[in-house]
Design a protein around this nucleic acid. Structure first.
Lengths: 344, 344
DNA sequence: TTTGGCACTCGTGTGCGCAGAGTGCCAAGG
DNA sequence: CCTTGGCACTCTGCGCACACGAGTGCCAAA
């Protein structure tokens, strides 16, 4: 009654930290005796037991049944991540390996593929990498190609190296000169602009052309705007699903919903979408909106070619994961991918 | 000693067929008594037992331990697939559903995505679809775009709707007129040709240009040839991994190597590559070259836009799968995808 | 060649007891 | 007031014995 948010003793926090660390290591409920043996807390098991009782009272830990050790709750992990743990920086050989592995990439697809594999390997968990989003990118070039008298192909190239193409069925035959004119006018206005800004800049373009060509111009522009707006085209790459087998003992039950979630791009996109841009986000257990991922944690962060983030990446693993290590790996990989993208 | 290839009785074959069917249904070793009850074989359990002993002698079935029922061996499934089973045609509502589901596709990516999901859903197994291969396709159009004074972007569009793009760093500045000339000459010779034939047709193109432009032309062509030749760029799409959870009871052991295999595009490509083009191929258990898939079967078939196949698709499931149904679904989906591609 | 009978094998499920781990509580000590 | 050692209690997991039942192989008879 004295207050929901009772202040926890320093030692109690140390005990919680020790419990999380031990449990992550052994995957077994940890008892008071084992704790004092493995960490030099300077107190007796009995004292630790009292602290544990308090921690349990507050909902940070929980015991599967009487006479078993304690395991952290989602709330316990949350406190651990927020207050008790420090992101573990990668060792310098690790950093060199990351750098070296990513440097070999030849194009955007390759960058993403390598990144996701690397992340899966480093964390030994499932890795997710979102392709650089169209929304944040800028136009590098827009190309129009006449494929048939009334068929034009539109190619959009962004500064992140991404390419989108669309077929346009025009209302009438398209002259090569008109097409060339349109192409140069579009590029003159749109090149270097952010994708969402482009429609506004091209709005009055049809008026420049002769009456007869306006329908064609409008059709092409409509398709272009559609391509620009299409948020849904956000693509995602996955790796490390085999790591799911290390999840737990109660197998099919835990793994199935996770596999199902991983197949739904929409779910993954929403998952990453919740990341608050630059800052690293950790969603623990039931904090995840999607029910199938209630017993997993998601660590995600934005990455970008310059100072601001164009897409996100992260890993998905059991709530019982090595948070400091995972966060370190995620942060390091995001940084290096950003650098690679900036260079190209 | 009378001969390894002893002729099997008609009834023994019927027994084998019944064993396979029952085992696939129940996932439990099937005994003689249960067999005569569920199939009207017109003989007594004792007779069936004799036949079973013979079948086991020949290696078609096997019992996990004394006093357990029999389960088919790889060899047994092989005989079943080759001689005892008929591909089960899809029912007409099923066919309509397939047609309807695939008809909604808007571009090649969408076709492949829908196909792989559909196949996974129909068979309740893991589905694999290969993108229409570059090798078998023909050139629809090749586009060259000057992005910077010495930087050209090359876009290759195939008749299957696939788009490949490459950056070309030219040895010197590239004039727009030269580029236009090169573009039209390339397209005049290459359009409509099969990809592997294109290099031969363009071989002597540099000679047509002025001395000063030849290095540039050669560089562009080299990149084009590279893009054409790049077999490795074969892409593959997966779906239905969540169905792996229905694999068996001895879980992590079976599922892990399979998940690992599924992450290796190379393995999947080789797997599909073994398909003998048009004919449906079934690889059972240890017939699969890749070790991790030794307890799975792969059913695959080619599909194509016209009369010949441009790529392959298939499903991967436990050796204990419903072969007739799976083969029916695979065949039906392959046919409809072919039709869709032919229409576009 | 088929069939019924019969003994045999072997995996599975159940009940019991025991050991071990871990707890909560209490009374004594700093 | 916090810490500590002691102690009784409560679980789980494991080993074991046992019975059950499914399924077989074999044999002798039809």
């Amino acid at each position: 009654m004295a207050g929901e948010v009772r202040q926890l003793d320093d030692r109690k926090l140390a005990v919680l930290r020790a419990i999380v660390q031990d449990y992550v290591g052994t995957e077994e409920p940890v008892g008071s005796k084992a704790l004092v043996e493995r960490h030099n807390l300077g107190v007796s098991p009995a004292t630790v037991r009292n602290d544990m009782a308090a921690l349990e009272e507050e909902g940070y830990i929980h015991q599967p049944h009487t006479s078993a050790g304690r395991i952290p709750t989602d709330k316990g992990y949350r406190l651990f991540v927020d207050k008790l743990a420090e992101i573990k920086p990668m060792s310098s050989p690790e950093r060199r390996a990351i750098r070296h592995f990513l440097d070999g990439a030849v194009d955007l697809d390759d960058v993403v593929t390598r990144t996701v594999r690397l992340l899966a390997q480093l964390t030994r968990q499932v890795a997710v990498v979102q392709y650089p989003s169209l929304t944040r990118s800028t136009v590098r070039h827009i190309e129009l190609v006449a494929l048939a008298p009334a068929k034009v192909m539109l190619v959009l190239i962004t500064n992140t190296g991404r390419v989108e193409q669309r077929m346009v069925d025009c209302p009438g035959t398209v002259g090569e000169t008109v097409l060339a004119d349109l192409r140069s006018r579009i590029n003159a206005r749109a090149a270097g602009q952010r994708l969402p800004d482009v429609p506004g800049l091209l709005e009055e373009l049809p008026a420049v052309f002769e009456q007869a060509d306006r329908p064609t111009v409008s059709t092409v522009l409509a398709t272009l705007f559609e391509a620009l707006a299409e948020q849904n085209e956000e693509r995602i790459m996955l790796a490390g699903t085999a790591n799911l087998t290390r999840f737990g003992h109660d197998f099919p039950l835990t793994i199935q919903p996770v596999l199902e979630a991983l197949e739904e791009q929409v779910v993954l996109l929403r998952l990453l979408g919740e990341t608050t841009d630059a800052a690293m986000t950790v969603r623990i257990g039931r904090e995840n909106a999607y029910e199938g991922l209630n017993s997993t944690s998601v660590v995600s962060v934005g990455y970008g070619s310059g100072d601001e983030s164009v897409a996100k990446l992260g890993v998905i693993g059991p709530t019982r994961m090595d948070y400091p290590g995972t966060m370190g790996a995620v942060r390091a990989v995001a940084r290096y991918v950003g650098q690679i993208l900036a260079e190209s």
